[in-house]
Nucleic acid binder design. Structure first.
Lengths: 227, 227
DNA sequence: AGACGTTTGTGAACCCATGCACAAAGTTGA
DNA sequence: TCAACTTTGTGCATGGGTTCACAAACGTCT
């Protein structure tokens, strides 16, 4: 029987969403030569409550020492393992406009775990351009490429109208994890995982809170008007 | 007394996060000439349960007609109002590398509600370059600019090490809503709102689920090994 | 060795969000 | 006008996530 709780137990989604942040902070601490942290210290760095941090970590196993804290190296390694970053993940980006270029050259992509193996765009003007050493090819070549060098994660950085067709092509080639930057809801068969990142959604949420703040500030005025 | 529930009642964060998606879908339907939708239809388009959609909308007021559905135009307008998109929000982007360029020319930014009023970067190589008609200027000019043409929302698209300093500059100039693309946790005074979008976090979450899928597929093998 | 201080891991209470199911309210058609 | 049908808005139950608070476990110092 495996003793690793990460492989046996279910890790809550909310916890998984925070693990990358813990990992990033631990890596920074390791670079700074810090050997050990308490949940209190680490939580303060990340901006969460220490109880939440401890409960999150408890889902991966018991890697702390009571009265002492957590060994930075060990904990970083265990989080990496839990997230699956000990193996590397071949990534393909479809849509090499401004955003696609930015993503391809984003250093966060290259860092541990992820490797860009394909860049796709049907615009002839981009044909055979290279970004970070990888050639841009037409989407039709996806199948061939995937057969030779399988793609684990597909990133969609096209305009919204093209997104569903690109998604279908990725799914058709066998990709079952997709990161979608296009402002469109994708329909996929079950078993395929889609995460969406939408810039304008984030802006709109900020606008909502900004509006609330300015309404609160102008309370007096509106109260008078309301009368 | 104002009769608008959006101004009086509290709208849950989870609801606010979904409103932009509802709005986008309604706008698309309006373009297609659709005049009315039921909660069932709209929910199917967006990919949520109809009960959730109705509950979300009930927080803004009562804009549906029983037995009929929602008027597309009216509902879109009411969501826009609730989100604060009826006024326009001046946005400044700091950090004009690949990502900054992509954001500045992203069409989602220009669409209703948001207007780019400033682009900042201290790299002399970028000085006086124009993107979408706006000149790139050094960060030191932020204060002056803000005094003339106030900035409501600041977008940080710099590398992580610079993010906190940029954030301090924005806050110092009076910006109280910040969208942070740098992989760093920002500390801000209370009253300032920060949202973070992190590309590598999203990738890592995908990797976690991908790993879980491949572990499930290889269950038999690991079970044998475990014995 | 034993007492003391520290920090983890977790049971239990709370809180928010989701989903169900139905009454209320509207339309349509005879 | 009235009955049949449709769809909203919402009270209630359920489930997950967060926070509290404390016992268990470890190191340290005498």
């Amino acid at each position: 029987m495996s003793a690793d709780p990460a492989l046996r137990r279910e890790i809550p989604d909310a916890t998984v969403a925070r693990l990358p942040e813990y990992l990033r902070t631990l890596s920074r601490l390791a670079e700074d030569g810090v050997l050990s942290v308490s949940s209190e210290e680490l939580a303060a760095e990340v901006g969460v409550r220490s109880a939440q941090l401890r409960k999150d970590l408890s889902h991966l196993g018991s890697y702390g020492v009571r009265g002492v804290g957590y060994d930075v190296e060990t904990l970083a390694l265990e989080i990496s393992r839990a997230l699956g970053l000990t193996e590397d993940w071949p990534v393909a980006i479809v849509g090499m406009g401004n955003l696609g270029h930015a993503l391809a050259s984003y250093s966060g992509f290259v860092t541990k775990g992820f490797r860009i193996v394909g860049l796709y765009d049907d615009d002839p003007a981009l044909a055979d351009e290279h970004v970070v050493g990888v050639p841009i090819r037409p989407l039709a070549e996806l199948h061939v490429h995937h057969a030779v060098d399988p793609i684990a994660i597909g990133v969609i950085a096209t305009p919204a109208p093209a997104a569903q067709a690109v998604c279908d092509a990725l799914v058709g080639a066998g990709v079952s994890s997709i990161l979608n930057f296009a402002p469109a809801v994708l329909s996929v068969p079950s078993g395929v995982d889609v995460r969406r990142v939408d810039l304008s959604t984030e802006l709109q949420i900020l606008a909502f809170h900004a509006q609330r703040k300015s309404l609160a500030a102008g309370d007096l005025r509106s109260a008078v008007v309301a009368q």
